[in-house]
Write a protein that binds this DNA or RNA. Sequence first.
DNA 1: GTCTATGTTTGCGG
DNA 2: TCCGCAAACATAGA
Length: 272
Amino acid sequence: MPELPEVQTVVNDLKNLGLVGLTIEAAQVYWPRTVASEGDFGRIAGHAILNIWRRAKYLVFDLSGDLSLIVHLRMSGRLDLKDASETRSKHEHLVLSLEGGRELRFHDTRKFGRVWLTEDAQSVLGHLGPEPLEEGFTAASLTASLKTKQRQLKPLLLDQSFVAGLGNIYVDEALWQAGLHPTRTASSLNGAEAAKLHAAIIEVLERGLRNSGTTLGSGQGNFYSVAKRRGRNADELKVFRRDGEACPRCGATIERLIVGQRSTHVCPVCQP
DNA sequence: GTCTATGTTTGCGG
DNA sequence: TCCGCAAACATAGA
């Protein structure tokens, strides 16, 4: 569930909560499959957090001694910062004890989330495509790479090696914004359409970021950032999970369909 | 109570 | 190259 804006929000919160500079004093793994890297996870003890940043939907903690702690939240993962005295919930699968008495806890009801402790961050992050909010992602580069692909737009944009950080929500929103149908073949876009898609991707991501991410519904399984804060972006969504409602641009009824095995939302008039 | 759907990623077979 | 499917799990909602 967390896509680029949600993961960036978590990074921002962790930094605001003062984690950079703290030493990790101990680690406890309660669900071994959460740890995807080889080697003894306990060797993280004694390493300080030098920086926290994001690549695609991955959180990266630069640690002293050239170690990297990498976290992917997948569907239901969350990081909670709690006092060490608080009792552990049954969904907290990894607990890092921090200098000063607080603990960073990886909470993941569905257990799809993964963490890596590695000397070689590239082995985890190396397959990722361009960051859509960085310089290298231009209308020209997107246009050129779209031309070489015979795939449908939706599964292509969800492919993290094509462009990094988009998930189901923001892909549907970007395609609506650009007026493109999710089943269009990538290579069929003309220059103007590709440029419009480029602008739409950036716009929906930046809006999500400004709103501290998207929290759907009210249940526990939805996105909450570190300080238990909900994202405010749900109200800004134009088509995602709005099937049956009126398109905010033309008033037609939004439809839901399945594209590439993923539920997909479109305006049949704006996205022919 | 029971059934269905789920926002992610990876790997496999065709 | 590309597509479809399954798997990793638990919970919310109908």
